[in-house]
Amino acid sequence: MTGTFGAVTPGRWAMIAVAVALAAVFPLVYHDPYYMTIIVTGEIVLILNISWNFVLGMAGVWNFGQLAIYALGAYSSGWLMLHHSGVPVPLAILFGGLFSGVVSVLLAFPTLRLFGIYTSLLTFSFAQVIQYVAVNNPHGLTGGSFGFPEVPGLFPDLGQTAYLRAYYWVCAGVIIASCFAVAWLRQSHLGIALRSVRDAPAYTAARGVNPRAARVAAFGLSGFLAGIAGGLYLSFEQSFTTSQMGLTPMSLDVTMLVIGGLGTVSGPLIGTALLTVIQTKLINYPGWQLTVLGATLLVIVVFVPGGIVGLFGRIDRRVRGWVAEDADEAEPAPG
């Protein structure tokens, strides 16, 4: 049976509740500022990945411009924070999200005229051009490669521990909310339309679904969330450099999504967590971080299509298959 959030069994709900509760109390018992900073940064990357997964995995549009959208969210919210100090910071971040959403919709129109690999080419070069422009720092709007100047941030008055804790909760809240939103969207009319446009575009259009409208909506929603992530990053780190949207973070994020499992709700969670841990472990061997990353990405794509979530799904099905076989043998069907 499918409920509001798809087929979630009571056991699954209990697991989700326990995970949320554990995540909520975690910063109360754990204080190490170094690792907390890494965790909060990882949370922000996760928000970005959830937004990217929505358009890349679920809608199946090969959008590689997401990091530019993310950066535009950071720059636009930062602009508001710096030049209009009367605006409350949460509103500025929201503005960043809206701005990114609008840009994303505008990007969607030319992009959706294209097919297949042209889509990724166009969006990839969109990201590169935005980065190039940002490095050149037009009218001092972006701070160039030295980064956006310091902004007030969400919690200017808190001490270090409380500051990290507050950001942790804010980001966790956004993550949980967006996971539920994605799970709900996945089985809503929009989500079903998106997935069926991805899998069988001609048939879906023949059944009266407007493929372009559904995908433009996906771009808007995904851009909005990416912009929020950008604003959060800027306000947390107090800086946003152009290297944040370069090829390195992009390859990291793509790897996270692919390893976790594209198009699934839990894929980004697993991929981001796993790679953040690996990257942190390798932090003393900076040269190896990305070399390992490239190799991992290659191996996963070639040997584990569907990522970790897909792999577990297959194992799960196989185990169920065995259980079912055993049951069949023990209890021959009547008749």
Binding site: G116, S251, V254, T291
Partner: peptide
């Protein structure tokens, strides 16, 4: 259907790998 995207990613992975080997 996803052959183009998959190979886009694998060749991209090779590019990451080569860039970082050069960097090292």
């Amino acid at each position: 259907v996803d052959f183009e995207l998959v190979t886009f990613i694998t060749t991209f992975a090779v590019a990451i790998f080569l860039t970082n080997v050069a960097l090292q």
